[in-house]
Design a binder for these strands. Structure first.
Lengths: 214, 214
DNA sequence: TAGATTGTTAATCGATTAACAATC
DNA sequence: TAGATTGTTAATCGATTAACAATC
């Protein structure tokens, strides 16, 4: 099997995807690594290296066909696949995510919302009723769930995530400030807002260390 | 002046801070790089390298004094300084952030909330009234603002951020899917939720590339 | 003192950039 | 064909790890 692809590369892929969608929206049909470099700030060399790991999307003397590369990236990024998603914790952040456009793509389909607050039970968000957390296990037994969004308090993050994992959930979008400890086949993507804000404070205090975003 | 510190190091600092706070909460008074390694998954060697860039927090044969290192990190991270913060865009996400505990620290003080929806004008969130965006310029003229949280639609991100920059704001916590183009002395920290979710989908599709969080 | 653990240099590893032949 | 631009190797750069002397 091919060598694992480093996180550095993986984190650039959604950016390439975004720039390409932008180019396409502007009617661009073909694009060179140089063009993408101008848009993204990455070097053309790096962009060619990155894309070349995944196949022969380019053509010498021509560049990349925008549609073809977009299709390729959608396949690579897993956007072609459908994932069934639940949100655990319907506080302000859970509501914000449920109501955002993040789950408008077919690749991520919201199928359940859960909160342990009895008052919220039955409230409709995006057409889905908020369910009690005590109903979670039954729900997981009866429905396939691929991905869980964790917008719960830090104290309950470990036990709830372990339970979800035991019930077969393998994708975790983790908004809690806790490092989850799950099996090797659990995929965890952290959004540590508190750390992100602290990093901004650091650079405001130490602008000398700031290299610019990207 | 010292060599600029790489983003890789900077992004680990808030984690060290979190682990230390956790250790302190459990009554730990001194801690070795080996202990921190167990907690964080980073190598002890790397932790010593990182901390050593900022001063002599450790002591041979003893390790690090938790309180002393915490104090040091607070200073380094800019948590000792007060920053005046406004949120632009009081949709679901703006509300969620305003109501979160992120702004409970003295280092980040919420001083203004803005939204262009007339219906929201005057609504109190955390004791602050939501103001119309047309009042933003006056507000910026009369009040010092260090940091702006951008929870606005992508289309208006560029002009609004440029305006804020022109009025002296230098810290930008950017939740839009747009790369801001501001002066070199603007510090931008992006939270690209859409990209974060796509990265999770990528790893769910390509678990072989996943190295575990941290 | 003996044991523990840091500070710091040197070695290694990996990621980025440069260069250019291949080729459309 | 001439020009453009990729694919890909080699060179460079930077970050991580290993090792161990310093020292508490």
């Amino acid at each position: 099997m091919r060598k694992p692809i480093s996180p550095a590369v993986v984190r650039r892929l959604p950016k390439y995807y975004r720039y390409l969608r932008h180019a396409k929206a502007e009617g661009v049909e073909r694009i060179s690594s140089g063009d993408l470099s101008t848009m993204s700030g990455y070097t053309a060399s790096q962009i060619r290296q990155d894309l070349n790991r995944y196949g022969d999307f380019g053509q010498q003397g021509y560049g990349y066909n925008v549609n073809r590369l977009l299709k390729g990236l959608e396949e690579i990024l897993g956007l072609a696949k459908q994932n069934r998603v639940i949100i655990i914790g319907m506080g302000n952040l859970g509501h914000a995510l449920a109501n955002s456009d993040l789950f408008d793509r077919p690749s991520v389909q919201l199928v359940g919302l859960f909160d342990n607050d009895e008052m919220k039970k039955g409230e409709l968000v995006q057409g889905l009723p908020i369910q009690a957390e005590e109903d979670l296990n039954d729900f997981l037994d009866e429905n396939e769930v691929d991905l869980a969004v964790l917008t719960i308090p830090a104290q309950v993050a470990r036990p709830i995530s372990k339970n979800l994992y035991a019930k077969g959930v393998r994708g975790f979008w983790n908004f809690t400030s806790v490092d989850l400890k799950l099996g090797d086949d659990a995929m965890v993507e952290d959004v540590h807002l508190s750390e992100s804000l602290i990093i901004l404070l650091y650079y405001m205090k130490n602008p000398y260390d700031y290299k610019g975003v990207n």
